[in-house]
Design a protein around this nucleic acid. Structure first.
Lengths: 213, 213, 213, 213
DNA sequence: CATGAATGAGCATTCATTCAT
DNA sequence: CATGAATGAATGCTCATTCAT
């Protein structure tokens, strides 16, 4: 399959920003990876920073949309949390480069862009927070430090992008299910709730991920 | 309290590498933060990269030593795991800059130094792995994906450096205890084992952290 | 009134070269001002430098032709000088952009084009020199440094392009007449000759400028 | 005589900005002319534009100071005008590069610096305007368009920097005296006033120019 | 006639580093 | 111990220009 120049630029940027960091990636690295001259790069991007911003915006928007879709049909907090975790893990395992960029390079943005990206990220994290609160209020979660647990949970899931390999022994569905179970345990859900919730999550998430992104 | 120039350089580097990344930090930034001229910096360091390496080496060695000390007197896997988690969390909460550098900037090292640092890190992580294996073999942990759980655990604990604030409502001891409990839950330990293990961990860790670092 | 693309290019170049200088004007500035893409520009010009040369050539040729026309019917040196000055001032006031380009951007030309343009300029200035010499020989001008005076005169007249505004209080005819008088004074002409000469000059110059350029 | 690097940078900039214009001069040209690497240039300047601004500021300040000194001891408008003209001509003949930069490159400055430089230039030109007004009010000058004459006068004098050569037949004192006479004629001063005024001007100006600048 | 895509060369500026003083 | 002076290499980005469509 032949890629357009614009696509090659985007992919080169995602890969290089993820591997070497924004400041560690030069415009000439980008050009070489995109098989373009440094000058030609500028047909497909504004500045290097705007390219970074565009990558982050797109990635976060996709995650946010996915999170809404995936929780839409679910009523119980354990199911919802499992679905959020599974989607997050799926995304981080399938697109480790994009997600590493989102997770690590916010500091490279200057004020204006940073504000926008942080707002998107906060919006996304709010979905997790609401789910946990609802579950605690309903008595299906048990946790004396829910704020901490939520952060711990997120960081745990982000980590997937750092180590998961599709060539490893663990399938994506198994991985997502395992993380969902870990999450429910961390939230203090009853073991009996886990299996159902994890199953429900697996179903909706794989639906979202069948859709081409 | 007055700092020596060497100390000012070290601290400036830790802070700036943590905040802006290795490649995002210039020698001039370092000099300014250390209240030295760029040329004078070179009395206290080799190259910028060697400075990074030294910071990482020291930080990892300290963690490794601490891990040995903290587990030395403990026999049961739950206690050991709780101690490792608590020490890790303590360290990441007290020295977020150092640990962020260790966790994020390995990619900035060139081959030689990287090998050394990665070896240290692997040595440290091996302690976690052994503890989990022993616990599983002894039937006090229950987990069908222990390798994954170990990685999830580590990432979760690393995350503390990214968000913990000493000005927040949560004390360090409470935080460490909470993480220890989360970890034991993730490992599938019995709830009844948790409380004891966490208490034991708290005792030994605070001993280590009373010692000046 | 609608302009052709070629005209838009020419006008954009004249304006921008005058305002920002040849080196200060980019091909993209030109394209934007001409409402064309940078590539399309090249249907209407050779290189950027050739465009500059063409503007200068045309402008100088027009001035040269005008100078011949304007002095053709006049016999007395004061009348001729007055006519030359008036035409020069008229031209610089009506076409400040063109004349600024001619006066300031010769240095931007490379050797070949520069030679051509300088030759045209010299040919034009020769008309002033001859007029002054004739007047001195005839005893109607009095000046002990005529070469200097001629240069001073020219620079003074060139200056008009830098400050004259049609929105100011001074009409073009009054301006030209005033400069003609200043010139005759500088040449040491008798005050009694001035009035006549200036009147004669005004007549011929306005004739030339009624013709569309 | 050996020059410091800082002096070489300054001189190179003055010469090159004058010859090829600000935009026509590259940082590499500057470095080569100053016998320094492009990087070393930046020990002695801020940006290229700030270097331009510094040159202009210094040049204008010197001219302004000189104008005050030179007119301080003179009472009569013709003498004052002659002195201003003679100083201006002296300066433009002796420092053609500096003055060409001041006269031609204001447009290359960005808003902030431009404002500052234009203010200085206006302050200087105000001295000419006041002198002419006083002379007209006193009836020693006769001119029905004094504003125009003042501008014509200035442009005429600026022109000196464009053509005067110390290797030509005309001495600096003679040149200045001639311009002073031209100026008085343009202002409509009586011929009888000219000789005295020019002599007085010559005296004060050469005093100022004996002082090292 | 018009332009999107492309580029080699060049831009001003900053980089980490060295060294004489 | 400290630094001003110096630099080769690299930075992100723009330049004028060409050409296939």
């Amino acid at each position: 399959m032949v890629l357009t120049s614009a696509q090659r630029v985007r992919r080169a940027a995602v890969k290089l920003f993820a591997d070497k960091g924004f400041h560690g990636t030069g415009i000439r690295d980008l050009a070489q990876a995109a098989k373009l001259s440094p000058a030609s790069l500028y047909h497909y991007m504004g500045t290097k920073e705007e390219l970074l911003g565009a990558i982050m915006r797109e990635s976060l928007n996709r995650l946010l949309t996915g999170a809404h879709e995936v929780t839409a049909g679910l009523a119980e907090p354990p199911e919802k949390l499992a679905a959020l975790v599974a989607l997050h893990v799926f995304t981080h395992a399938k697109q480790p480069a994009e997600t590493k960029v989102v997770d690590n390079e916010v500091r490279a943005l200057s004020a204006g862009l940073r504000r926008e990206i942080v707002r998107l990220r906060d919006e996304y994290e709010q979905l997790w927070a609401e789910t946990m609160e609802t579950g605690l209020a309903a008595g299906v979660f048990h946790d004396d430090e829910p704020a901490v647990t939520r952060l711990a949970l997120l960081e745990m899931c982000n980590g997937v992008a750092r180590w998961y390999s599709p060539r490893g022994p663990l399938g994506l569905d198994r991985l997502a299910a395992h993380y969902a179970k870990l999450a429910l345990r961390m939230a203090g859900a009853a073991e009996s709730d886990c299996a159902n919730a994890v199953r429900a999550a697996a179903r909706v998430v794989s639906t979202v991920w069948r859709t081409p992104l």
